[in-house]
Design a protein around this nucleic acid. Structure first.
Lengths: 171, 171
DNA sequence: CGCCTTAGGTTATAATGTTGCAATTCTACG
DNA sequence: CGTAGAATTGCAACATTATAACCTAAGGCG
């Protein structure tokens, strides 16, 4: 884990780092990080809260980009393919990847309260994959684990009287 | 793992067992396993290949049931709530649960070729959850792991010349 | 029965994701 | 340069998945 999104941190450094990594990766792979693609990546990185494809449309429109679904989905597909973002299928939303180097088993914790998602590197996950492969005789090509619950920040801010309400951070 | 869906097995015994378990569970919880709900459960259990909500509509219609989306989704919600089925969010499909006793961490392997899904009990999964909770200080409430790749049956039936094609089992 | 709760019928609509094709832009190569 | 081919984008329509709202029917229970 390179950082903990539930703790205060210098978020603009997060974004800057992500963009630099993306540019380097594209350079390396000869992929074109066009204006729309870059902007979509930036928008996704604006917070650690995964963002839906249709939330991006009006944001792009504001900036004069074409704003029909295919535009966004094509950008998302490009970024997914390079591993610059991940898709969280339990919530149909997209979030930046903080270690975009090749395909890797993906594990996220998603806070049901603030919505922020933390990507995790987990050795148990790899062990599990190997165990499944051995047990079933299968070949695993893709894998995604999505945990959800309450993050420390939300548990702290959720006093008994506000229990059940949303505490809407958006960092 | 109570069985391996990729190996030949007595599938009608699978179904019979699932239905009996469902009836017992509903009895125990005072839940009403109505005709639509029972039929949806049976249809889902007809194969180990997860089925989409909209695939169920025409099947129900054939049998004289009302066949509008809410009918199916209400039945699915009921079955999900009792843990009689699981939703595989990476493929938007529903599949029977072979151990419907309370909420449990869910882990599936889905074959990209034949589509059949195998539910797995995995101790590494529980270890991972505990590790994540300790590492982030979070409380995990739900979790889903979806692996995908090629099952042994499909690898075997996929000779070099048919490579890349589908091998469409539907057991 | 008569009341209440739960389940189901019906219509419409929301949310998410694709297809197909034309127009444009970029890149490589002569 | 300049042009051919590939990649990207614009655009319109459509497909798939899921939910809302409101009403009717059925079952449980005094």
């Amino acid at each position: 884990m390179s950082q903990n999104v539930y703790e205060p941190h210098n978020h603009s450094a997060c974004v800057r780092h992500a963009i630099q990594e993306a540019q380097a990766l594209c350079e390396e792979k000869g992929a074109r990080l066009t204006r729309v693609r870059l902007r979509v990546l930036e928008l996704i990185w604006q917070s650690h809260k995964p963002v839906g494809a249709y939330e991006l449309l009006p944001l792009l429109a504001q900036e004069g980009f074409n704003s029909a679904p295919p535009t966004v989905y094509r950008a998302l597909d490009f970024l997914l393919e390079l591993g610059l973002i991940h898709r969280l299928s339990t919530i149909n939303a997209y979030v930046g990847c903080n270690r975009p180097h090749g395909s890797h088993p993906v594990c996220f914790f998603i806070c049901n309260c603030c919505g922020r998602a933390q990507e995790l590197e987990n050795d148990k996950l790899r062990a599990m994959t190997r165990q499944v492969e051995a047990l079933l005789g299968v070949t695993v090509e893709q894998q995604m684990t999505e945990l959800s619950g309450v993050c420390p920040a939300c548990r702290e801010h959720t006093t008994p009287e506000t229990s059940g309400e949303h505490c809407c951070h958006d960092h």
